[in-house]
Simulated scan of single mutants.
Amino acid sequence: MAARRLAAGLFAAVTATLLLAGCFGDGGKPECDNVDGIVECRPDQRSGAPRITGELLKGGSYDVAEQRGQVVVVNFWGSWCAPCRAEADDLEGTYQATKDSGVTFLGINVQDSRDKAIAFEEGRVSYPSIFDPGSRLALAMDIPPNTVPATVILDREGRIATVIRAAVRQEGLQPIVERVAAESPAPAGQR
């Protein structure tokens, strides 16, 4: 338990440093808005997401690069996490409400056992989850989440548009997802 707390503290410190470094340009002016744990970056200030690939909880593999052209909502969760249980219906509701507008969802299960993670997902969500017990995918993000649950919204070009460091509610998440989904993709020469 002490090791988990130490790792969480170190993760939070590294995240804060990366967030500050990633959200300030050469002139020291903020390039991303950070309000109440929600970091939103303007399209011209977004960084690309790291490679997000892995083994799915129920078998098979996933590569977010195959979703280019869609908005991808990535949720970091664990079966041991009470706020993750609380937000599951809101995530599924937002997924169902936005999937026809070019939005897909991906869960990333962290610090968990496969059996507990599969049992948690059963009947809660219909989108896939990568099994990542070592949290390597979260650590690879330019603006990594520093809490679980956390949600990262990638735009249609695979860039980090929004990071939410708290449990989400559909009434808060869905408008953000719809706003990112409504953005025009950059012309081919600017990608």
Results as ranks from 00 to 15, higher is better:
51 R>L: 12
51 R>H: 14
52 I>H: 07
52 I>T: 04
54 G>L: 12
54 G>E: 06
56 L>V: 09
56 L>Q: 13
58 K>T: 14
58 K>W: 10
58 K>V: 11
59 G>C: 07
60 G>A: 11
61 S>M: 08
61 S>F: 00
62 Y>W: 06
62 Y>K: 08
62 Y>D: 04
63 D>N: 14
63 D>V: 03
64 V>L: 15
64 V>K: 04
64 V>D: 12
67 Q>C: 02
67 Q>W: 05
67 Q>P: 11
68 R>N: 12
68 R>M: 08
68 R>H: 14
70 Q>M: 13
72 V>H: 02
72 V>M: 11
72 V>R: 03
74 V>F: 06
76 F>A: 08
76 F>K: 08
77 W>R: 02
79 S>M: 05
80 W>V: 01
80 W>A: 12
80 W>G: 10
81 C>N: 09
81 C>M: 12
81 C>S: 15
82 A>P: 15
83 P>A: 13
83 P>G: 02
84 C>P: 03
84 C>D: 04
89 D>H: 04
90 D>P: 03
92 E>Y: 11
95 Y>M: 05
95 Y>R: 04
95 Y>V: 04
97 A>F: 07
97 A>G: 10
99 K>S: 08
99 K>A: 13
100 D>I: 00
100 D>L: 06
102 G>A: 13
103 V>F: 10
103 V>I: 08
104 T>W: 08
104 T>N: 11
104 T>S: 15
104 T>Q: 13
105 F>E: 03
105 F>T: 03
106 L>F: 13
106 L>C: 13
106 L>K: 09
107 G>C: 10
107 G>L: 12
109 N>R: 00
109 N>V: 01
110 V>T: 05
110 V>M: 11
110 V>K: 09
111 Q>H: 10
112 D>Q: 11
112 D>M: 06
112 D>V: 08
114 R>L: 14
115 D>A: 14
116 K>T: 06
117 A>N: 07
118 I>T: 11
119 A>Y: 07
119 A>R: 14
120 F>P: 04
120 F>Q: 11
121 E>R: 09
124 R>N: 00
124 R>K: 15
125 V>M: 14
126 S>Q: 09
127 Y>W: 13
127 Y>D: 00
129 S>A: 13
131 F>K: 00
132 D>H: 03
133 P>N: 05
134 G>V: 00
134 G>A: 11
134 G>P: 02
135 S>L: 01
135 S>R: 07
135 S>P: 00
135 S>V: 00
136 R>E: 15
140 A>E: 11
140 A>H: 10
141 M>G: 11
141 M>S: 04
142 D>S: 13
142 D>L: 09
143 I>Y: 15
143 I>G: 02
145 P>I: 10
146 N>C: 06
148 V>E: 07
148 V>C: 06
149 P>R: 03
149 P>A: 03
150 A>D: 04
151 T>A: 12
151 T>I: 01
152 V>M: 12
153 I>Y: 06
153 I>G: 07
154 L>T: 09
155 D>H: 14
155 D>E: 15
155 D>M: 13
155 D>R: 12
157 E>L: 13
157 E>P: 06
158 G>R: 12
158 G>E: 01
158 G>H: 12
